[in-house]
């Protein structure tokens, strides 16, 4: 454990040899990652490789046994998930976790939650500052919804949206938190090829429009190879390769992990 504020070469998201074990199962070992500002990094690996566990370590759902996580120079490992969200790390979930009973608009407004500093009293008394923040949250939410093409469905219940829209709403909600780093957990899961192409465009658009760093878990190789600048491959909790898409495609260890040992 090094307690230095941030490593000299630190990226916007700097992960240094993070590990966690559940009993005897070493779910993630010595996972390291450096994501520069504006970077687009892919995280791939066969099923059960520990990709989502790695995400959960970064976002504070699990506390890492060893190692450190820095977001924009601030050490966040061991913090609560909501504190990490405040530090600037937003995520989507592999199995969509929208607030289903709430409206589409309210889902995005909840993403803006951190911008409302007013407590219970000023909320109930509707103070001027409270009203102003609430209006700015409304504006911003509508803006985000129209960017994601969900403006017309703002009043619908989130659970009634089609699957692809739910995925996009989850990304919109995560962006509403004004993140520095966005973690996308299998955003293309369950999408058809056409939707995947649109998603690819969307991811590139998000990075340019919001100028944030994106870390992406994905099973669809075509999508990963197309959008990511660097890729990390996990297998059985260990990092077996890191590099550009071209390097990863030729890496014998990666081919072995996906296709098995050459016979």
């Amino acid at each position: 454990m090094n307690d230095v504020a941030a490593p000299a070469m630190g990226g916007l998201l700097q992960v240094d040899s993070v590990s966690i074990a559940f009993g005897g199962l070493k779910a993630v070992q010595n996972f390291s990652l450096s994501l520069p500002s504006g970077g687009l990094h892919g995280l791939i690996g066969p099923n059960g490789a520990g990709k989502t566990t790695a995400f959960n370590l970064l976002t504070g759902v699990y506390r890492p046994d060893t190692g450190s996580v820095h977001v924009a120079g601030k050490r966040v490992d061991g913090h609560k998930p909501h504190q990490i969200a405040h530090a600037g790390l937003a995520r989507t979930f592999q199995n969509i976790r929208l607030f289903g009973e709430l409206s589409v608009l309210d889902n995005v407004r909840l993403g803006c939650q951190m911008r409302q500093p007013h407590g219970m009293w000023t909320t109930i008394l509707r103070s001027g500052g409270y009203v102003m923040t609430e209006r700015s949250i409304d504006l911003r939410s509508h803006e985000l919804l129209s960017i994601f093409g969900l403006g017309a469905r703002a009043r619908e219940q989130a659970k009634n949206l089609p699957y692809g829209d739910q995925r996009r709403l989850e990304i919109a909600r995560a962006l509403a938190t004004s993140p520095k780093v966005l973690l996308l957990d299998e955003p293309a899961a369950g999408m058809n090829p056409q939707e995947k192409i649109e998603l690819m465009k969307l991811i590139r658009f998000i990075r340019e429009k919001f100028s944030i760093a994106i870390l992406l878990i994905e099973h669809d190789m075509k999508l990963v190879m197309n959008v990511c600048e660097r890729i990390t491959v996990l297998d059985h909790g260990e990092t077996i390769a890191t590099g550009t898409p071209g390097e990863i495609q030729c890496n014998p260890k990666v081919i072995e992990a996906y296709l098995g040992e050459p016979g």
């Binding site: 998930p81 909501h82 995520r91 979930f93 929208l98």
Partner: peptide, 12 residues
């Protein structure tokens, strides 16, 4: 609705 997602939105 969802405690995990709420926390991810910065809700304590």
């Amino acid at each position: 609705e969802d405690e995990v997602a709420a926390q991810a939105m910065g809700v304590n």
